[in-house]
Design a protein around this nucleic acid. Structure first.
Lengths: 231, 231
DNA sequence: TTGCCGGAATTGGTCAGTCCACCTACATTA
DNA sequence: TAATGTAGGTGGACTGACCAATTCCGGCAA
């Protein structure tokens, strides 16, 4: 036989620019930390030598994957990879209506209450992070900083962390992100943050006093109250 | 004083066009069958009275959600919704050890117990599917069919369905699949299925008697017992 | 009639440029 | 000092156009 390989026609690789951009941005995001800004659309477009449109499409995909968050008038930021599950997928096919918010609330209650329960059961429970967090948010409230939808759930997230169940942390983070999405999409105003803060403090107090069951009950009631009273 | 309510300024909800498009397309996709063509970008843009750019961004999101497929020179097609959330991503980076199984068990307990609780709270609760399921599995046990790891969780899944919370169903399904994966990976034998069956029947009995709280407690204990006694 | 060919229409992908609403920070003014 | 005004940056949206590839369809040749 001949040792010479016949020339073989190969299909020309046709690259989609936006896919290429997506790949590069994914690597970029992977090399950055949570909260880092990955630049404005215009910057990225110039650096990648592509149009803003292509950058935007890649960013939309990245956003749907839950890797980045696009904030108006601010830029694009790396988002907490803890929620390895995609909120977008979790809600796939569902419209944000009153019923959906109810379901979401029920799911959140299951997870947040479990976080409290597990925390209360821990022998080596360290409540210091929770105290510190409440101290911070309390100060922010006094300083009348502007609203921050994610603030309401930071306490619950911190609870899951001190509870020490990474799986719970991930699912909870996903649900919390979906919660934030849904509320902004529904155009709902955040609830009374001072009231939320008081309830958080009550839960922490119950934990400090070793009253786990009461803490769980308070958490359930707390989540119940966050659901919108009227559309 | 005055019975007249003061006019209250409310923040103006600013809608993102592409989000609006996304919502409408989601509903459209939901009303179509797998493989159906949902039209070209230009058609959709004209029908929605928006620019192609907005349609494209919505389609990109929809694509990332795994709901549609965009085919060059052909159009946009509805795709198989493929299993909602990925168990693989949920466990990403974690080894299956005793601790992991414990975490998983805790997470499962949170969801399965919530399913019971929600079911118990439903006014129009229809327990027939559960009775039927237990009848089937009971017959299988009598016939000494071979082991089926998923069988242990069919009852809990059915509970979530009668509870009527689609979000809970999805998350629960993911956790259950991960559970099955982890157990097979760890080479653990399934527990005593006859015992599981008895416990399921006890839970159903509690529901039938309207004792929701007892049913929830039984479910928590049930899940606890499924965790391996020794590594 | 059958089968092939080639242009026309269609489609997703991409681009440059423009405008808008909004937020922030800094400078200005009372 | 505390309001007010202003300029620049940001994401969001649109327009109009062009490209490459595919598909469609009419007409020509066998």
């Amino acid at each position: 036989m001949s040792g010479r390989e016949p020339f073989r026609i190969r299909p020309i690789r046709q690259v989609d620019v936006y896919r290429e951009v997506l790949g590069q941005l994914e690597r970029l995001v992977g090399s950055l930390r949570v909260g880092d800004r990955i630049g404005s659309e215009r910057e990225l477009a110039e650096q990648l030598q592509v149009s803003r449109v292509s950058v935007r499409e890649a960013l939309r995909t990245l956003e749907a994957m839950g890797r980045v968050e696009i904030r108006r008038n601010a830029g694009c930021f790396v988002v907490d990879p803890e929620g390895t599950l995609s909120p977008t997928r979790l809600r796939a096919g569902m419209a944000v209506d009153a019923e959906f918010l109810q379901w979401l609330s029920e799911l959140r209650a299951a997870l947040d209450a479990k976080a409290v329960e597990l925390a209360a059961r821990r022998g080596d429970l360290d409540l210091e992070p929770l105290r510190e967090l409440l101290g911070q948010t309390g100060a922010e409230l006094a300083g009348s900083r502007r609203a921050d939808t994610t603030m309401d759930m930071r306490f619950e997230a911190a609870l899951a962390r001190v509870a020490g169940n990474p799986l719970l942390i991930r699912v909870q983070a996903t649900v919390h992100r979906l919660w934030a999405e849904a509320w902004s999409e529904a155009g709902l105003a955040a609830g009374d943050r001072r009231e939320f803060h008081r309830e958080h403090e009550a839960i922490l107090a119950a934990l400090e006093q070793g009253e786990g069951e009461r803490a769980v009950r308070l958490m359930n009631e707390h989540v119940d109250r966050t659901v919108p009273t009227e559309t």
